[in-house]
Amino acid sequence: MPTEVLLVEDSPGDVRLTQEAFREANIAIKLHVAEDGVEAMEFLRREGVHADAPRPDLILLDLNLPRMDGREVLALIKADDKLKSIPTVILTTSEAEADIVKSYHLQANCYLSKPVELEVFEGLVKSINEFWLTRAKLPKVWQIT
């Protein structure tokens, strides 16, 4: 079973860059993209065109998004019994203390700032792959019993 990652990111340049970085890090990863918060929730709830969407093993969430921003998405995920156990990593350009505090308050699993340098960014994606998708033990059965 491939590793499924949902990337919630509105900038096509960043999407592509992340795809490239994951390709370098782990070819087995299947990266799905939602361009805003609304689409991310549709994907996670398998609504509309996303009826057949897989349940992701990891969510990479940008904070500043059109329509519904990352903070709202995070709040919805962590309030949803079916979704709350999916590790949600904030990946954003914001370094504002307020955003960091708010994200952890909303139960983000981790907060990462996008580095400016390409090589550093690639290193970060490698770390994400290594920690969240390789070393961390994630639940296989997510249905609450």
Partner: peptide
């Protein structure tokens, strides 16, 4: 400086690629 950095990050990353 923050907003300038964003497009610049794209220029820089993709020229490096």
């Amino acid at each position: 400086s923050h907003d300038l950095q964003e497009p610049l990050r794209m220029v820089s990353s993709y020229t490096q690629l």
